[in-house]
Design a protein around this nucleic acid. Structure first.
Length: 721
DNA sequence: TAATCAGCTTTTTTT
DNA sequence: AAGCTGATTA
């Protein structure tokens, strides 16, 4: 065997995957088993040892972050630039295809990308335009319906309108939505994929070129592919191009978004012959953490069946904290983080994970008060902020007057006397004559159908559009952005707005100018797109990081979904309550519940050394106090892996100091094996084991009412009897 | 037309 | 609790 440097650092299974010689390869890689590593090394191995030129590699991921990481790691391993490789997200690559071959797509050359908020607005407008009641046909639901269908490659015309009247209306909305998109030259995210697929289906020569070009196709997070993405892959692969797919059925957490784990099963029949490689050795977590994860996930049915194992030591037990309420829970987490710091560790090694974004608030408040630096992931990203989107809409409209979505967004922001009535007239005219809103504005401002005040307002707005369009001529992207922000009056508008928020908004507008200055644009990639158009597309496709780069050592707050792919020495999973996690919307169907369980599995396997779980007995939720029982997932973790911490009943911790059994170091434990004790919650029991001293001392107690528990003396409030 | 106030709903997320 | 929509008032 000759081992190249690329293979030296791999274990046997990883090496087998990287060097698999079957035409197609499916790697089932458990959490922390070196999934990305295998992918990166496979690419490097193909290039270095198999003589595949970078130009012949297509590697697909789901997020921009994953794509960037892959590129960086491949370059580091190969010691050269990866230019020429097609590496990116399904959407990014599709976008690139559509730009290069726009003539064959039926799209205008300067088609614009609709992000989900834009899409929502368009759908709402369509609903109103059809004379449907928004309350009865919520745009959110229609949006969901349209996207779900697009993800399954079904256009409005493909839908069977025979059944129930509910679908009838939704199909009407879908039709009308498609028409508007077509007319205004915009595409939503799903459309990028769908159009690419259509492009290939209709142009066999073009498809043949690409099949000829790509010698290897590699896919990350294969379990997250939806129907249209899988079709996309199959089309590009044809019968000749070898596929290399990496995934983990236990980490499929995007079923609600159309992802189909079954694609993993289909892979074996759609591609042949396939080598399947299992990666089960985990390099991330302690034995205890893995055992918890393995036991939990065994409650799911229909798994492909992997069991993670590790050479690592058993490690610390998992701590479970029962908080009185969500405040108490947040203070507990703050305490734990401080302890972590006291042990000489860093906050950047820690993460607090929750099910839904709204849960971050309490933690932010408490961390802020206690001066624990933190960074919230997810939530509103930079290019999604209202003020930024407003500025982008002005830019888009200045460059492309026909962009109705942008027009609607900013016609009257800041207010300039174009109210609902005028707008309604514009919409009607635009619909009747099938022209963009800006043209309707031009016609109606002259026609005399509107009152003087309204038509003057419209004329002023048109003049503004002209000025803005002119101000783009021959300038750098940065100057263009600066000009538009100034001309639009957005800055003045936000300066007038009271409150601290306004300061942030103005700052973000400044940040947008910076983003424009730093935007690097590869003109080779998108043919004859203008710099500005590339910037605008990029803003839709890459919404940007949640916050600027962290310069400070801080902990991370994020949802379980956004934690996928990450790892931390210390992970604290909070809000482990029925209704919250598993989420109440998911408890009805078993399929959804299993997905929640996988989400829990993902959370647990993020932890390297220490895992802490917590739940609150009372929680203020939607404005009133709720009592959620502890999550069923807690019961699915073997109790010998858990140590329960309990703060006792601290009604108002500021008034009633928490009672603790504090042991001075060196003191003998007041409890001996065989001694009878009483616990406020569990009743009477017998001490069966003692260990540790001082703050870490704990005892195992077998309670009469069943069950044996490890209790930390500091928290347990045990009374000797 | 614009600003203000009262009532209503509430997952997860990437592109 | 908060953000958003719709109705009301200036």
């Amino acid at each position: 065997m000759d081992f190249s440097p690329i293979l030296d650092s791999l274990n046997d299974a990883q090496r087998a995957a990287v060097t698999a010689s079957a035409k197609h390869v499916l790697v089932l890689a458990g959490a922390g088993s070196g999934k990305t590593r295998v992918l990166v090394h496979r690419i490097a191995w193909l290039c270095r040892d198999k003589g595949i030129i970078p130009y012949g590699i297509l590697a697909v991921t789901f997020t921009n972050k994953a794509a960037a990481e892959m590129r960086a790691r491949v370059e580091a391993l190969l010691g050269m630039s990866s230019t020429g490789m097609w590496m990116g997200t399904f959407h990014g690559l599709s976008h690139r295809l559509l730009r290069s071959h726009w003539q064959q797509t039926g799209l205008p050359q300067n088609f614009q990308i609709l992000d989900s908020e834009d899409q929502f607005r368009v759908i709402r407008r369509v609903t109103k335009g059809l004379g449907l009641d928004e309350a009865k046909w919520p745009p959110r639901q229609s949006q969901w319906f349209i996207n779900a269908n697009k993800d399954e490659a079904r256009r409005a015309k493909d839908l069977d309108s025979k059944d129930g009247s509910v679908d009838q209306q939704l199909i009407r909305i879908y039709f009308a939505y498609e028409e508007i998109c077509e007319r205004t030259g915009v595409v939503d995210f799903a459309e990028l994929l769908l159009r690419s697929v259509d492009l290939f289906k209709r142009n066999s020569d073009l498809l043949a070129d690409y099949r000829n070009r790509f010698r290897h196709i590699l896919v990350d997070e294969f379990q997250d592919t939806n129907a249209i993405q899988y079709t996309w892959l199959k089309l590009l692969a044809g019968t000749q191009v070898p596929m290399f797919a990496v995934g983990d059925d236990d980490q499929s957490i995007y079923g609600w978004r159309g992802a189909r784990v079954e694609n993993i099963h289909s892979f074996n029949s759609d591609f042949d012959p396939v080598d399947t490689v299992l990666l089960e050795q985990n390099y991330r977590s302690t034995g205890t953490i893995l055992a918890a994860a393995n036991h939990l996930i065994q409650h799911n049915t229909g798994r492909l069946g992997k069991n993670l194992w590790t050479h690592d030591s058993v490690g610390d037990p998992i701590h479970l904290f029962a908080a009185y309420n969500e405040q108490d829970e947040a203070r507990f987490v703050a305490d734990q983080l401080k302890q972590w710091l006291d042990q000489g560790r860093k906050l950047s090694e820690t993460a607090v994970l929750y099910r839904s974004n709204a849960q971050s608030r309490v933690f932010e408040e408490v961390f802020f008060a206690q001066q624990i630096p933190y960074r919230v992931y997810g939530g509103l990203r930079f290019f999604e902020r209202a003020e930024v989107k407003n500025a982008l809409a002005y830019l888009r409209l200045a460059a492309h007057h026909s962009n109705d979505a942008s027009f609607e967004r900013i016609v009257n922001l800041p207010t300039r006397g174009i109210g609902q009535r005028t707008l309604a007239a514009l919409r009607e005219y635009s619909r009747d004559y099938a022209i963009p809103l800006s043209e309707a504005t031009s016609v109606l401002s002259q026609s005399g159908e509107l009152n003087v005040r309204a038509s003057n307002a419209l004329k002023r707005f048109l003049a503004l559009l002209q000025t803005m369009a002119a101000s783009l001529e021959g300038l750098s992207l940065q100057e263009q952005v600066e000009n538009i922000i100034k001309l639009s009056g957005l800055k003045a508008y936000y300066e007038r707005e009271p409150g601290a928020k306004a300061v942030d908004r103005i700052e973000n507008l400044g940040e947008l100018v910076n983003a424009a200055r730093e935007f690097n644009f590869d003109p080779n990639q998108f043919g004859d797109m203008t710099r500005l158009d590339a910037f605008l597309s990029n803003a839709a496709l890459e919404a940007g990081e949640g916050q600027g780069e962290a310069w400070q050592d801080c902990t991370r707050l994020m949802t379980l979904h956004s934690a996928k792919g990450l790892e931390f020495p210390l992970v604290i999973m909070v809000g482990m309550e029925e209704g919250l996690f598993p989420h109440s919307m998911s408890t009805q169907e078993s399929g959804r519940l299993e997905e929640e369980r996988r989400l829990c599995y993902v959370g647990i396997t993020r932890a390297r050394e220490k895992l802490i779980l917590s739940y609150a007995e009372n929680r203020r939720h939607y404005g009133s106090v709720k009592y959620y029982p502890p999550s069923r997932f807690l019961r699915e973790i073997p109790e010998q892996l858990l140590v329960e911490l309990r703060a006792g009943v601290t009604i108002s911790p500021t008034l009633i100091p928490r009672q603790k059994t504090v042991l001075k170091p060196g003191n003998e434990s007041p409890f001996k094996i065989g001694q009878r004790v009483e616990h406020a919650g569990f009743g009477e029991g017998l001490v069966t084991e003692c260990e540790g001293v001082g703050l870490h001392a704990r005892v195992q107690v077998r309670f009469e009412r069943g069950g044996s528990k490890w209790l930390v003396l500091e928290y347990a409030k045990l009374q000797p009897l």
